[in-house]
Amino acid sequence: MIEITGLPDDPWRFFFIFFVAGLAAVAAAKLYGLFFMRWKTPFRVGEAMNVNRAEVVEWANGKGYVSAGGELWRATSSDPLQPGDAVAVLSVNGLSLQVKKETR
Rank of each mutant, 00 (worst) to 15 (best):
R44L: 14
V26H: 04
G6K: 07
V66W: 00
L90I: 14
G94W: 01
G6V: 10
S67P: 00
L95V: 11
V51H: 04
I4D: 08
V26N: 05
E71V: 08
R53G: 08
N50A: 14
R53C: 04
G69N: 03
G33Y: 02
T103W: 00
V45E: 12
N52E: 13
V89Q: 06
T41W: 00
N50I: 10
L95F: 10
V20H: 01
F15R: 12
L95P: 00
A24M: 10
I17W: 10
A68V: 06
V99W: 00
A24Y: 00
F14W: 09
Q82H: 07
R104C: 03
D79E: 07
R38L: 06
L90Y: 00
T5I: 13
T41E: 13
R38N: 09
A75C: 05
Y65S: 11
V51S: 04
A75M: 04
V26P: 00
F16T: 15
A60E: 12
W73T: 10
E47D: 12
A86K: 08
D79R: 03
S78A: 14
S77I: 08
A75D: 04
G22M: 08
G70N: 06
T5E: 13
F19T: 14
D85M: 01
W73N: 06
D85Q: 01
D79G: 06
G69C: 07
S67W: 01
T41R: 10
M49L: 15
A54F: 02
E71G: 00
E102T: 12
A54M: 02
G94R: 06
T103F: 00
K63W: 07
L95M: 12
D85T: 05
T41C: 00
A48F: 04
S78M: 06
V99Q: 04
R44Y: 08
T76E: 11
L97N: 07
A60D: 10
W39F: 13
S78I: 11
T41K: 11
L23H: 05
V57C: 02
G6R: 09
S78V: 12
D9C: 07
Q82K: 14
A24G: 08
D85I: 04
W73V: 09
A54Q: 02
K40N: 13
V89I: 15
E47A: 15
W12Q: 10
P83C: 05
P83I: 08
F16L: 15
D85G: 02
K100L: 04
T41A: 14
W73P: 07
K100T: 14
F35G: 04
A21Q: 07
G62V: 09
I2A: 13
D85K: 01
V45T: 15
A68T: 06
G46C: 04
V99P: 01
P11G: 07
A48H: 06
P80S: 07
A28V: 12
R44N: 10
I2N: 10
A25W: 06
L31Q: 04
M1R: 07
A54N: 03
F14I: 12
K30L: 14
S91N: 09
M37T: 15
E3H: 10
V26R: 02
A75T: 07
K101L: 12
